[in-house]
Design a protein around this nucleic acid. Structure first.
Length: 806
DNA sequence: AGCACGCCGACT
DNA sequence: GTCGGCGTGCTC
């Protein structure tokens, strides 16, 4: 007897379960299987096999879900690594690699057993439920929950079950996706026979049938029914009649749902590289196999031609018979990129992202697995595409935090996973950025990665210099009596640009819902007296709170520094800016671009196209315009308030601000005309702002890395965030305190002096959907190991390398 | 996710 | 005492 270690699809099962493989089944490592689990049947993946069972009485695997294994041994190794590193259930890690629509759930349904009405002992609620279930057919539990609420529906259903008034059944939902098929019509018999039949049909006045048959006799391959109908303008009845006479056969043929079918692809020719691109390529090419794995940081300002290097690298890999994945931060914003790749590798590019229909996703997945694609493009999840012979992973804009999965387990960072994947499969990694993540640059600087620099900006008209950047001190504006959002210099520059019929972008760094309070006269920001973190304004309770230590205070009426009474709640929306611009330039055509406006992916494209076609003079927007926008006519960029990000309670605040400012600055002057950028700020001396104004990444890095070193922030230390959520506030707090005390005890007993514990404190989002949230942040001290030994009560979320921490 | 088990308040 | 509601832990 052989036994299998199975990762089961059941929440909270961190370890694997042992099952016996019946000798009648062909099941091995990587197979998806149905297994009995408690009273239910769940899906699982075999991650190992052995001759000895690991428990006394294992149950038997019921059967394979698919004939072929779904995962390769390398993928299982990667899943194990992810599960360990991010302290997540193994199934969650495995699930990343399964085909789209793989997961199938059981539905609980109820049916009336006896239709005896008027049982006197029934409560009104019970009667109601009985009524909802009805006499005929089955009713889903989910349906009842929707009407009565989850807890109540279940409780009352249980009561009725006990009275044997209803019966319960568990049914497996049908597959969410099926292969798409299209009917094709094929000639039966030879062409000569068909010709004879044509004549016979004509004689018998079946003119339509004769036409169809003649049409088919000139074709050697089966023809789609729709094509026949379109061509001969006949109904399907004609084809059915022919099929009944056994002259033709109608067959279902599988077709691919292709998300790229709408693209107009002119095969692109390879452009002549600039000298700096050539130099960078040479360096990359020379060091291609050096390192374990070889990781390159392609460091080049916006518009320096990184994409061309990616394409060359992909071409190199494809030429050697291998394949590549290109990760992008957000596919919705980069249709041009997809188009560019697709026209360079015609017919060999696949895209994978959640914006596609499940059918498209499945078809892409299967054609990738079948070896029909050389290049896969997509956001972080595309990393897990079943690409055989993976030789290269590219990560564009590697500093972007969309690469970190936050909302569900496993909370992985695609960069780290990419490097591990490359290590397991002998592939090369190229990380590209104009403003690399501090941790990445540190690794490159200290020799862990190859640093490849692209020094010049390339544009269609030749080299375009970086824009001139002016830092405007917002405090000076206030002293001069300007209480508006836009400074005099910026307004003057806008007026000039409008006069020259040039385009302007105004950028607002409005991040999240966090608002902080600042004194308008002296620039003082309310900070926590204990942690010096900017206090966050909670509008519901009308208080300022520190999310790190739980300090809270009512909103003061005046500034403690200068006694000024003009306190400003910052977090100004784009609408405010729009109103103000309209007041100053009533005749300018404005376009507002933020998450409120752009609902769909096409809305992005339309907005961008409108602006590019000069249908507006001024574009006002948030983060989004810093990313996908490339409009050559823009000569002026204004950053309304550069400090919003700086005051964010996160040690990466400086880094994020620098990155954002550089990105916005990179938007101006990409065409023939040079650009100007205005940065409005209350802290003109902050190193992130000063460095951004000079386009000086290295200068910024030098200061930032010292700050990180001093406080043992990444890359010199790591964090793990533990969030507990519970509907009961007291219980939530108590559990957080219990775990905190436990960790401190472990710190003593195990001798982990480096372990730092911050909290417990209410999490940044202190209450989400009726559940209170408390968090602990642990720094260093090999806590991941400790946590994997521990079984945390359910309700805890573990986030290794979280995005926003103190 | 579902089921068993154990704890606590309302009622026989 | 006992029944049932609710919270917690386990499922190979």
């Amino acid at each position: 007897m052989t036994y299998a270690e199975v990762a089961v699809n059941s929440p909270g099962s961190r370890s694997t379960f042992c099952y016996a493989i019946p000798s009648t089944l062909e099941v091995g490592v990587g197979h998806a299987v149905w297994v009995p689990f408690g009273s239910r049947v769940v899906q699982g993946i075999v991650v190992d096999t052995s001759d000895e069972p690991s428990v006394e009485a294992p149950r038997e695997i019921l059967g394979p879900i698919a004939e072929q294994p779904l995962l390769s041994p390398a993928q299982i190794r990667l899943a194990r690594w992810i599960s360990q590193r991010y302290v997540s259930p193994l199934f969650d890690a495995v699930a990343l690699m399964l085909p789209p629509g793989f997961e199938r759930k059981l539905t609980t349904r109820f049916q009336r057993v006896v239709s005896e009405e008027g049982l006197p002992s029934l409560t009104p609620e019970q009667r109601h439920l009985l009524h909802l279930i009805g006499d005929k057919g089955k009713t889903r539990l989910r349906e009842l929950e929707k009407r009565l609420g989850a807890g109540k529906a279940r409780r009352i259903a249980d009561q009725l079950l006990r009275y044997r008034l209803i019966a319960k059944s568990e049914e497996l939902e049908g597959p969410k996706v099926r292969p798409k098929t299209v009917p094709y019509v094929r000639l039966l018999g030879s062409k000569d026979e068909a010709q004879n039949e044509v004549m016979r049909l004509e004689r018998s006045r079946a003119r339509r049938q004769a036409e169809v048959l003649r049409f088919l006799s000139h074709r050697s391959e089966p023809v789609p029914v729709s094509e026949v109908r379109r061509h001969l303008k006949c109904s399907s009845a004609v084809i059915t009649a022919l099929a009944e006479r056994h002259l033709v056969a109608v067959e279902q043929v599988r077709v691919k749902r292709d998300p790229l079918s709408g693209l107009s692809l002119a095969p692109a020719q390879v452009p002549v590289p600039s000298s700096s691109q050539l130099a960078a390529w040479q360096l990359l090419d020379d060091n291609w196999d050096r390192g374990s794995p070889p990781v390159f940081l392609l460091f080049g300002v916006t518009g320096s031609g990184k994409t061309e290097i990616y394409l060359r690298a992909l071409a190199r890999v494809v030429a050697s018979g291998r394949r590549g994945i290109c990760l992008v931060p957000e596919i919705a914003l980069t249709p041009q990129t997809v188009e560019r790749f697709a026209s360079r590798f015609p017919g060999r590019v696949a895209v994978l992202h959640s914006g596609l229909s499940l059918g498209e996703q499945l078809d892409e997945w299967e054609s990738i697995a079948g070896g029909d694609c050389d290049v896969v493009i997509g956001p972080r999840g595309a990393l897990f595409a079943p690409l055989p012979e993976l030789g290269l992973i590219i990560m564009d804009e590697e500093h972007e935090w969309t690469y970190k999965q936050e909302d569900q387990s496993p909370r992985y960072h695609a960069r780290d996973v990419a490097i591990e994947l490359a290590r397991l499969g002998g592939a090369v990694v190229i990380l590209g950025s104009a403003t690399p993540d501090i941790e990445t640059f540190h690794k490159a600087w200290s020799g862990g990665y190859h640093l490849v620099e692209l020094k010049e900006r390339v544009s269609s008209g030749g080299y375009s210099p970086l824009p001139e950047v002016h830092v405007l001190d917002a405090r000076e504006e206030l002293k001069a009596g300007n209480r508006g959002l836009l400074s005099r210099q910026l307004l003057a520059a806008m007026k000039e640009a409008l006069g020259r019929r040039e385009q302007i972008i105004l950028f607002l760094n409005r991040r999240g819902t966090a608002t902080f309070v600042q004194c308008r006269s002296c620039g003082f920001i309310f900070r926590c007296p204990r942690c010096s973190v900017a206090l966050t304004y909670h509008s519901v309770e009308q208080r300022l709170a520190c999310h790190r230590c739980h300090y809270a205070t009512p909103v003061p009426e005046s500034c403690p520094e200068c006694s000024g009474r003009s306190l400003k709640f910052l977090g100004v929306g784009t609408q405010r800016v729009e109103e103000e611009v309209r007041r100053f330039f009533p005749r300018a055509r404005l376009l507002r671009w933020d998450s409120d406006v752009s609902g769909t992916r096409h809305a992005h494209e339309r907005l961008m196209a409108d602006f590019r076609d000069c249908k507006a003079d001024i574009l006002i927007g948030t983060q989004m315009i810093a990313k996908g926008l490339d409009v050559p006519q823009v000569t002026l960029a204004g950053i309304v308030n550069a400090d919003t990000g700086l005051n964010f309670p996160d040690f990466r605040a400086g880094e994020r601000t620098f990155q954002l400012l550089c990105q916005v600055a990179g938007r101006a002057g990409r065409g023939l005309k040079s650009g100007t950028v205005f940065i409005q700020t209350y802290c003109p001396d902050h190193y992130a702002i000063r460095a951004a104004a000079k386009h000086d990444y290295r200068g910024f890095y030098a200061q930032e890395i010292e700050y990180r070193r001093r406080y043992a922030y990444p890359p010199f230390g790591r964090f793990i965030r533990l969030v507990y959520s519970h509907p009961n506030e007291g219980l939530c707090r108590r559990e957080a305190e219990r775990l905190s005390a436990f960790i401190l005890k472990e710190k003593e007993e195990r001798g982990l002096p480096d372990l730092r514990l911050i909290g417990p404190a209410p999490a940044f989002a202190a209450r989400v959907r009726g559940r209170y949230r408390w968090q602990l942040v642990v720094g260093d001290g090999d806590i991941a190991e400790l946590l994997s030994e521990l079984t945390l009560p359910q309700g805890w979320i573990v986030d290794v390398d979280p995005v926003g921490v103190t």
